[in-house]
């Protein structure tokens, strides 16, 4: 039986740890914004990381984007047929894929594939003293490992989102074309007819924010890993869970803000 004093002690300890970790995470983010503006910029390492992230996620994004396009089209068709509105299908798919599915699906896949990879890689470097080795060689490990990876994620994930949107629309077009022999030009015009600049801009901003989130959470968890190989697994796992949670929160917030801007 845990007595009241022990319970209070546990609660206060948990709260202390929570606020301490929030404070550490906040300082980590601030440090990124400080260091990203100061040379050296390690451009070659950023490009290298862009390829790493892109190549890691590309096959899965191709497959998932295509399936999302096909499945969403198949599922949306029957209700639209009930209202005799199948001609709206490309527009509906355009809105769904460009505004929501493309950036969100890409971000979730990258959180799983890229975020966990970054968390595990940096976690392993931390527990095997490779990060300390950089520091004692007068190399700034935050700049070389964190800034390059987060910047690469910010650059790459919007590109992957765009790619996912294109693949999703191709999947949708193939499905519609099989049913109704619609031309690609007609499909394309319809898909983008209801989208405006704000929709496209919001989609890009979302991808940038998601990229930053995946990069910063992965590097933060990896950089602060401890307890040997167990800590590496924990860092990778927490990087995925935390990034996914934050992505959903950000999605909700950005949609709210864009709706508010639309109504202005």
């Amino acid at each position: 039986m845990i007595n009241t004093t022990t319970k209070k002690h546990l609660i206060s300890k948990t709260l202390d740890e929570f606020f301490l970790s929030v404070n550490n995470a906040f300082r980590f983010v601030i440090q990124y914004f400080k260091q990203v503006l100061i040379p050296p910029f390690h451009f070659s390492e950023i490009i290298n990381q862009c390829f790493e992230i892109g190549l890691r996620a590309l096959p899965l994004i191709t497959l998932t984007g295509f399936i999302v396009g096909v499945v969403f089209t198949k599922q949306s068709r029957p209700p639209l047929e009930d209202f005799g509105a199948t001609s709206w299908l490309p527009s509906l798919i355009g809105i769904a894929v460009v505004k929501a599915m493309g950036p969100l699906v890409t971000a979730l896949i990258c959180a799983g594939k890229v975020g966990s990879g970054i968390g595990a890689e940096l976690g392993s470097m931390k527990v095997t003293e490779q990060i300390d080795a950089m520091e004692v060689s007068a190399i700034n490990p935050f700049k070389y490992l964190v800034v390059t990876r987060v910047t690469a994620a910010i650059i790459t994930i919007p590109i992957l989102s765009f790619y996912c949107i294109v693949v999703g629309l191709i999947g949708s077009f193939i499905n519609i074309h099989a049913e109704e022999a619609t031309s690609f030009i007609a499909f394309y015009k319809n898909a983008f007819s209801t989208l405006n600049f704000l929709d496209l801009f919001t989609s890009v901003i979302k991808s940038v924010v998601f990229g930053f989130t995946i990069g910063i959470v992965g590097t933060y968890k990896g950089f602060n890993a401890s307890q040997g190989t167990r800590g590496v697994g924990k860092a990778a796992n927490e990087a995925v869970v935390m990034a996914m949670f934050l992505i959903f929160m950000e999605e909700m917030l950005i949609v709210q803000v864009s709706n508010w801007m639309r109504s202005m």
């Binding site: 890689e121 080795a133 004692v136 007068a138």
Partner: peptide
């Protein structure tokens, strides 16, 4: 500190070679 570190060599217990 970095200038000083360049004058000191540190050989780690785990060797700490960069795996990648």
């Amino acid at each position: 500190l970095n200038a000083l570190r360049l004058r000191i060599g540190f050989s780690f217990q785990s060797s700490a070679l960069y795996d990648s």
